[in-house]
Amino acid sequence: MTTENWHRITCKAEYLVKCADVFFGDEGGSSIATTEGEICGKFGDQTLSGSWDWDGDYFYRTSMLGKLDLGSDWIVIDVTATKMRLTLEKGNGPQVVYDRKDAPLSPTAETDEIVFLSSFDIKHEAVEEFTQAMIDNQTAVRAETGSLEMRLFQGTADKGVFFVFGRTDGQAGLAEHIESVAERGIEGDTSAALNSKPIARHLGPAIAGGQYLALDRSAGADEMIVAAVFDLKPGTRDALVTQYGKQVPNVRAHSGCLSFNAYTVLGAPDQLAVVEIWESEAVARAFSTTDKLSVETGKLLTASVDGDIGSYLSPVTEIAPYVAG
């Protein structure tokens, strides 16, 4: 009888390197805990969603399976080269063993690149220090061989709002990024600046395909950039995805639109993410209020979002853009 060579994971840095962004599961389904703290998966016909962090010696998770609230738990994590064992209630509860799966995290159309959008709410007295830390981190990320794009945005009106948009070259690029982030310790360095826990999102394939700007482009002085994650009323996302399948190429055809991308959010069936860059706010506003399909899309979006749509659409400014040469 073969004895399994189990190894216990005792810290977040080790979990990020060995377990994050990898699917584990059984014949009933599989799930993934992402680098940015998201849990998502599918078991039978039920969607698993939630968040995770590390607390002391334990993997700490809060999750839901379909409409069933699984609550929070502190879990002992043990692994082999091919399996993960979870022992609930700090090692004193039920135990389950999952196999490591080979499913990709978030393949986009025609590529295996992984796309993410994270947001931060920063204390105003810490904005300057946080900004510099993120610029330094961005410089390091851009030097990673698997990094395809890394952009940092700051709210134009509310300077404490930050977004990070990134793309990595598949699982290999992501693995390099995970190890690099753990080595730099950026999470610990910036934790005191946070008003609340960062929200990390892995995005699904870009609707109608991705449109990405040259890394070394020269940004115009009047450009308007919007990075928005819409919280939707239950059951409305599918109709919006269909609508954006028409709207995305319609917007891109306008000469004043420099880039327009819309995404579903993995593990969040009631969210839609949009990142758009326009020649100017005036051009964007004129198009959205006079183009027939844009007006139709705006009405559907307004009816679908949870809350006031204006609260989602605050412009942002890119910090430390790529430089030619």
Rank of each mutant, 00 (worst) to 15 (best):
G245E: 12
V265S: 06
L232G: 05
A221G: 00
C257V: 02
T242F: 10
T242D: 15
C257I: 00
G267T: 02
A227H: 09
N250D: 15
T264S: 14
N261T: 02
A221I: 10
G235K: 09
S218N: 09
E223A: 00
F230C: 04
A268H: 15
V229M: 06
D270R: 09
L272D: 02
V251G: 01
S218P: 00
L258G: 00
A239G: 08
A228H: 02
A262W: 00
R237M: 07
D231V: 04
A221Q: 10
E223V: 00
D270W: 02
G267C: 03
L266A: 13
C257E: 08
D216W: 01
P249F: 07
F230Y: 15
Q247K: 10
S218W: 06
C257M: 06
Y244G: 01
A227Y: 06
I225F: 04
F260S: 03
D231H: 14
G245L: 07
S259E: 15
V229F: 05
S218K: 12
Q243Y: 07
A262I: 00
L240D: 05
T242R: 15
A273E: 01
R217C: 04
V226S: 04
F260L: 06
F230V: 01
D231S: 14
N261Q: 08
Q271A: 09
T236A: 12
F230S: 02
Y244H: 15
K246D: 13
S259W: 02
Q247V: 15
R252P: 08
D270E: 15
A219C: 08
A262M: 12
V229S: 09
K246T: 12
T264K: 06
D231Y: 05
K233Y: 06
D216N: 13
F230D: 01
L272M: 15
Y263K: 05
L215E: 12
K246A: 13
P249V: 03
L266Q: 14
A219I: 13
V251D: 07
D222Y: 02
L272E: 03
P234T: 09
T236G: 06
V265N: 04
C257Q: 09
R217F: 04
D216E: 13
D222E: 14
S259A: 15
P269K: 10
N261K: 00
A228C: 10
D238T: 14
S259P: 07
D231Q: 14
Q243V: 03
L240V: 06
P249M: 07
L266Y: 06
L272R: 06
G220M: 08
P234R: 10
L215I: 05
L232V: 03
R217P: 01
A221P: 05
S255T: 14
A221H: 09
A228Q: 10
L266M: 15
A268G: 06
A239H: 11
E223S: 01
V248D: 07
G267K: 01
N250V: 04
D222G: 00
S255P: 05
G235N: 10
R252K: 11
G235M: 07
S218I: 13
A262N: 01
K246G: 05
I225K: 01
V251Q: 11
L232I: 02
T264D: 12
T264W: 00
F230Q: 02
P269N: 13
V229W: 04
